[in-house]
Write a protein that binds this DNA or RNA. Structure first.
Lengths: 221, 221
DNA sequence: TGCATAGTCATCGTATACGATTTCGTACTT
DNA sequence: AAGTACGAAATCGTATACGATGACTATGCA
């Protein structure tokens, strides 16, 4: 398995994807200090493309940047988490609703299969695996969204959440069960070609509920 | 009046704001070819900070970038316009709804005053002025949104629309009158502390209606 | 002993230089 | 006359180099 991506195009691209990957997979955990020279040496490029990469990641909110000081991996303080989830609930809800009429029965079946895997996963609960399946499931639902801007916003939201090291469900394991049920309900709405409004609201609430669970959990700490 | 901004901080910042300003105010119109060296010479800096600025603008969608070819001011082909308006309808609707409970009566009065100006403006219709007032009006409504991510998305949407040279209402003057009425309706909803759902839907429809008007207009060309 | 200040080190910010790629124009061939 | 191929100019991409800024440490004074 080659470490460096082959199709990388420009060095800036390479650097961008490399750093992003390390953030998402947790090699660079929140608060990690991103030193340009060090990354450049590591990737065998000069600092210039690395700078560009960092700035792009900053624009996506994965990295916090301070002039003349440096870049750090954006922490997920609880406030940020709230903002991100709230934003995602809105854009993902919209994306799912817009996507729904375009989802064929094959894709529905695929999503349902993933959801069944999630249900099985409830037995020997593994939050990390569960979270990845969760993303897979939702991807099927919103990926057909015809508006690329909205789709992009959804992706950005998921990316930011991914930089939470492991998983939302580590904090709120109780949500996992409900989550699976709500997924099935969502699928049935889509199959029955429900109104866009209805689907949007369901998708939005599904996410808000996870956020609420997290918040009431956090309050007890 | 000094041409260069004083608080500009880094050269990258300077370049970013300078180029952005020129795009928004129309000095660089859509399709304009942004040549790094030329801009750098013009701003008395080297190309490196200009590159960074361009990349940031690319991330915001104001600039289209092609490897080894160059950057151009993002055109507003009708499709892009549609996507942007659709996205804006969603995030602005949400922002307005979240903002609504925090708007005090003073701000309401201010918004109403702006709307009255718009109504007067209907007599000797000036699309550019009308559009600016329109932005002022909506700013009052969504600016209190407590979620900075969502607010940022709204601003980005408006910025992209601003790079339309003059005005939406140049194309759909018929919408102007209805628009003013819908504004008043929105204000009354907010004053009466209507449910967030209701406000969100109203704000969203208000924008979609403009989009629909544009689309049916465009179909006739 | 504690705080202030100066000096050094790490790191970022920008300029300049050169190599790589694309595009456009011109000349040649069919 | 039209199309293709070659070459030159324009522009981008990256590396290296140096200046600027902020952080840390050590030393001296209160």
């Amino acid at each position: 398995m080659t470490e460096t991506v082959l199709v990388a195009g420009s060095k800036s691209e390479q650097a961008y994807h490399a750093v992003k990957a390390r953030i998402v997979e947790g090699t660079y955990s929140p608060g990690y200090r991103l030193v340009l020279a060090a990354i450049a040496k590591d990737l065998r490029v000069s600092v210039v493309p690395v700078r560009e990469a960092i700035r792009r990641l900053e624009a996506e909110g994965l990295v916090k940047f301070e002039r003349n000081v440096g870049a750090t991996v954006a922490g997920i303080d609880p406030t940020e988490y709230l903002y991100t989830m709230q934003t995602l609930s809105i854009v993902e809800g919209a994306a799912t609703a817009m996507s729904a009429p375009l989802i064929d029965s094959l894709a529905i079946a695929r999503a349902r299969a993933v959801n069944e895997e999630m249900r099985e996963c409830l037995q020997h609960f593994d939050p990390v695996r569960f979270t990845r399946l969760n993303q897979d499931f939702h991807s099927v639902l919103f990926e057909h969204c015809p508006n690329p801007h909205i789709l992009d916003l959804v992706h950005r939201g998921w990316n930011r959440l991914a930089s939470l090291r492991s998983s939302t469900f580590r904090f709120v394991p109780g949500r996992a069960h409900e989550s699976v049920d709500e997924h099935e309900a969502l699928l049935q709405l889509i199959e029955s070609a429900a109104e866009a409004d209805i689907i949007e609201k369901a998708a939005r609430l599904h996410r808000s509920a996870t956020l609420d669970a997290y918040l009431s959990q956090a309050k007890n700490l």
